[in-house]
Design a protein around this nucleic acid. Structure first.
Length: 213
DNA sequence: TGCCAGGCCGGGT
DNA sequence: ACCCGGCATGGC
């Protein structure tokens, strides 16, 4: 069986197990961008509290965050953990957004995918997963998001080498799947949800929906 | 009650 | 070019 068929079969199994995920949670693309930074190595429920704080303070906008000091921002996003570093990272992104795109996500997303991706990676605090999450889930651009669950699930099933790098895994999916935003969106969402439920660190995956691949 | 969560950076080797 | 410690809250 070729890799494309295999990847689509896995997708089907996950979809059959969970149904559509409707990702990313968030009312606006800006909320998705901020959530992408805040969720770095952090449980989503904690991020929700931080987002809620920003909303209650009426600061969940480029202008709102631009007007906050790093200290004030850190206090609002405290529940998301690593709040001091994340406050700097969010501010770094916002400052860059204003200097490069006049504070406009629409202008930012009007850019070519690969160009924008490398620009995002140049912002301190935005790494490959955060950049790809922003591009795919806030910008609807066809880039595949890789994360810890992707690595854990696919290496355990011996579909990729355990020592694979981020870019190697990203290429593996992009080269063997149709370049389809909706598919990339749903595929990653399913991986994360399957991972949360069945693929814990140093624990057996049973009962794993992908058992007999 | 430790372990884990949708990473990334910077310094040391 | 890797490897590792640091960053921190909240849920189970």
């Amino acid at each position: 069986m070729n890799k494309t068929k295999q990847l689509l079969k896995i997708y089907q199994k996950m979809f059959d197990a969970l149904g559509p995920r409707q990702w990313w949670p968030g009312e606006t693309s800006f909320e998705v961008v901020i959530g992408a930074i805040l969720t770095q190595n952090t449980n989503w429920s904690n991020v929700e509290k931080a987002i809620k704080n920003l909303k209650m303070a009426d600061k969940l906008s480029p202008e709102g965050i631009y007007g906050l000091s790093v200290t004030e921002l850190a206090e609002l996003i405290r529940p998301s953990g690593f709040f001091n570093v994340k406050a700097k990272r969010v501010k770094a992104f916002i400052n860059w957004l204003f200097s490069r795109y006049e504070g406009s996500l629409s202008k930012m997303f009007a850019r070519d995918l690969e160009v924008l991706r490398s620009e995002l990676l140049s912002v301190k605090g935005i790494g490959p997963e955060t950049a790809d999450s922003i591009l795919l889930y806030a910008g609807n651009m066809p880039t595949f998001v890789v994360d810890a669950y992707t690595h854990r699930i696919f290496s355990r099933h011996e579909l990729i080498p355990e020592e694979s790098t981020y870019d190697e895994m990203k290429s593996f999916f992009e080269e063997n799947l149709p370049k389809d935003v909706q598919l990339f969106n749903e595929y990653h969402a399913l991986i994360v949800n399957i991972g949360k439920m069945f693929c814990k660190p140093r624990k057996a995956c049973d009962p794993c929906p992908l058992k007999d691949i």
